[in-house]
Each structure stands twice: as C-alpha cells, then as structure tokens.
Amino acid sequence: MSNILVFAEHFHGKFPKTTLVALTAGKEAAAKMGGECHAALLGKGMDALANELAEYGVKKVYVADDGSLEHYVADAYAVALSQIAKDKGTDVVIGTATAVGKDLLPRVAVRLDAGMASDITGINDDGTVLRLLYAGNAVATVKFESANKVISVRATAFDAAKKGGKGEVEKVAVSLDSGALKTKFLKFDETKSDRPVLTEARIVISGGRGLKNGENFTTVLEPLVDAMGAAMGASRAAVDAGFVPNDLQVGQTGKVVAPELYIAVGISGAIQHLAGMKDSKVIVAINKDAEAPIFQVADYGLVADLFKAVPEMKEEVEKLKH
C-alpha cells in the first residue's frame, strides 16, 4: 500500500504555517500519486499536538513520543522518521524546506533508498514535480525513478491546510540506539522578536546594501517595519556585509517569501534576491538608482534617497491609521 507520510514540524507547542503547508502538499500528493495522507509527529510530550494534528484531515497520525527526541538532531530524527515510514508502508515522505527539513530529509532519503526532490513548487497530475534551478531561471519537471520518494516543499508554493475531519492517533515506539547517536544538542539561542515571522508575515520590508550599515537597519528601517506591522528581511549583500544576521536573508540561498506586500529598500535586485521574493503579490522598490534591476519586477517603484523616503513613508503610513 503506497501512502504519503508528512513530517509535522512543531515549534513552541504549535504548528507553524510551514508545517500546515506540508500537510496541503501531502494531501495533494495522495490525490495525485495514490494512497492515504498520514502524518508523523516526533518529540517529547506530544499528546495535545497529536490530537490537533489529527484534525487537519490526515487519516492517521503516528506519534513517536520519546525523551531522546526532545530536541531535534538530524541523526536521531532520521532514524525515527524513516522507521515510521518503513513500518507503516509509506512510499512518499513529505516535509517543508525549513532549516530542519533541509537538514533532516536527505538523511531520511538515504535510509529509505529514495530519490529526493528538494524545495518543490508544484505536483503534476502524473506524479512528476516542479522545482526551480539556476536561481529560479529554469523550472524543471522532475520524475522519480525510485519506488520510494522524499520531497521537501517550498513553503510559499502551497496553501496552509485547514482543519477538517478527525484522523486516528497511533503511538509508535522507536528504537534509538543511543550509542549510535553522536550528535549532542547543546543550546538554542532564540532571536527574540515581537515582529511576525519572516516566512509568515503579510508584509515584509527588506533592506540591502543601500542601508550602508547595521545601525541604519535599526534607526532607519525598523521604525517603518514596526509602523506597518511587518517582518524585516535583508538582501544577501547586507548579510554578507555583516549588517544583519543570516536568518533575515531573503533569496536563493536564504528564505523564500511571498507576502501580500514586499518592500525592497536599497536593494539592487540581483537574481539571487529576486529568487526569494518575486512571487510576492505586490512589490515595491525604493532605490536611488533608477537603473537598478529591482525596478523591473516592482509593481511600484520610487526612485529616491532611502534615508529621506523611509522616514517619510513611516509618517504617511501612520497618518493612514488615524
């Protein structure tokens, strides 16, 4: 029996949007490739989450609830997830191309002797999948030549699953040989922020090298970001220059976002950056160089000095609120 198993990542006792997206892709895959859509939940103290997951229209939720799975580490999770996949007759394992998904799923593919398609943007009716190559300059139609398949999906390419139906929750015991697990989780330093998560925000405002330094991200860009209730992003050039941390990077090798409104400030628009934001609904570019390539994808372009335009925009946005 060929079934689909969705790896349900969780964070702070919740399913982020990126997980709900994988559930949608899982259900779509089940409809097109055959079989039922199941989900796998790994961690410690998973009862409440397991019940919640079962409400998202999956037939079965397999829960590996074990102290050794409290913190994610690739080797332990790869053993547990592939064991569930094997024991439960899974042909296709699907997750999202998050930091965890990217780290984990290739190991699972090896354990299942599966081919793996990363960061897919669509599933065709014939079971082939779409993914982007060359910084989004080519769309490839990819066919699996292996019986088992592992897929990571691009979070912006599928909608978030909605609740509906009640699946069955089944606890599974995983046998982790602690001697074979070599990786030790030491700590997670969370970036504390009241702002929305970059990959989930309705509005994203990103800064580029035009901001000149890290301090200007704080003093110039952030007031506008907060006035608009937006998430803050950055170009690779700004990250490379050390202005802001890498987890703000939007682009081919950073995060892919598709908000309702994307505002690129002082970003020239290299293809690597466009690959991470060009599916945004509305794109605004503010740049003093009228020739900057970012204007070729912008719905609204403003040729201006950002150090004047950004504070002014904050004032205008605040006027709208009154």
Binding site: G115, L133, T141, F295, A309
Partner: peptide, 23 residues
Amino acid sequence: PKLKILALAPPSKREAGKVVESV
C-alpha cells in the same frame, strides 16, 4: 540517478509596474 529532469521551462515573467513620484 533516482531523479530525472524531463524538461526545463523558463519561469513566468513579472512585468515592471509604475514609477511613482513621491512617498
């Protein structure tokens, strides 16, 4: 290979919009 690329296609193109004069 366990994966085969059947074909490549160019991505859908996004058109430039309007240039505005002021904030």
